[in-house]
Design a binder for these strands. Structure first.
Lengths: 192, 192
DNA sequence: TTACATACGGCACTGCGGTCTCGTAACATG
DNA sequence: CATGTTACGAGACCGCAGTGCCGTATGTAA
């Protein structure tokens, strides 16, 4: 699967892909996703346009690769933490790592709204790994007796992540306080 | 404010605006937001392109007007309902009204990600009215002693709405069960 | 009636995303 | 070496968003 070498014809220039990802990352960070044209990326990378389209379906997939390269930590939570502390730590880390990349992620979510195939890839690469991680924290909490046994883990994951997508997509700042408040609401609820 | 009649020069054709909104709504519902071109809208409305740009900054604002015309119910909650029932009713109604319009709303949220000025208008027209309404339900619940007195109303509003944005933007179905589960999690929390 | 101001439909223009073709380059096979 | 196959940079081409300009139409004010 990794060896997609047809072994026939001229081999691909192995430096072109990384050069395109680097160019895309630099330009998007400097000017913002929608102010960076495909033409500008390939020019900066010093390649032809087809060389990009031979590797990615379009700008969204290229930028997804370019940014997930650095965001793909998704580290496992410490097993000795309580659910509240583990969740808070997860979201604080997420917000820190997103401080620089949030505009790009927002634009990728936007791109996915009109492109069902890219939405699938974005889910696989960005959404699902984080959902799985949070689900694991919650299930650990259930087993430890910290959380109720009848909770809907999938729905809780969606509530937690939605609570961070919503302000992000509205252009608000994601700080530590928000992580704490968010986790507190979902754990304790607001009812008396 | 309503009489933006300069009283000088040729008056605007009063039928052009409604014709454009109707054309936009029909085409977007039929083909989807990103498959409808500005050119197609003005052609269907039987007007020139500048006639559109004289009234709206672009497609996003036109479609926002065209769809909020029908979505702008935002009815006040019944005062005799408990917080849980009022919230459930609110989200069930929201999901029903969005069953047809959700794709368009998704595309508008997408448009707002690369256009800060449109984001402001989208917040004012779509986000804030609903946030105010849910905040009122929550505050009523606090006064009635149904909710704790120390809750962060704004954060709770964000958690509730985020929990509906997240699945919507991921292309999932918004049904009554989701409304119930969502409200249940936020009210009761997941902790034991 | 004569200015003046604004709206109108139509169209040209630029820059973009995406597709396609050209001539050339780099590899494997025989 | 010759042949076949694929990648390469370059650039033509299409449809679109957005802007600007044209000649014309429709209103108000002198």
């Amino acid at each position: 699967m990794s060896a997609d070498e047809s072994s026939k014809g001229r081999p691909r220039d192995r430096s072109a892909g990384p050069a395109l990802m680097a160019a895309a990352r630099e330009l998007v960070l400097a000017r913002g996703y929608e102010d960076v044209s495909i033409r500008a990326i390939v020019e900066r990378a010093g390649v032809g346009r087809q060389t990009l389209y031979r590797r990615w379906p379009g700008k969204a997939d290229l930028v997804l690769d370019a940014f997930l390269e650095s965001v793909d930590w998704v580290r496992a939570p410490d097993a000795d933490l309580g659910v509240g502390a583990a969740l808070e730590r997860y979201f604080r880390d997420l917000f820190v790592n997103l401080r620089e990349d949030a505009p790009a992620i927002r634009s990728l979510i936007a791109s996915a709204q009109g492109d069902a195939e890219f939405l699938v890839r974005f889910r696989e690469r960005f959404v699902e790994p984080r959902a799985v991680l949070v689900a694991a924290i919650l299930e650990r909490g259930v087993e430890a007796g910290e959380l109720r046994g009848d909770i809907d883990v999938g729905a809780t994951v969606a509530v937690l992540h939605g609570a961070f997508w919503y302000p992000m997509l509205l252009g608000e700042v994601l700080d530590d306080d928000r992580a704490k408040t968010l986790v507190d609401i979902v754990l304790r609820g607001v009812a008396r």
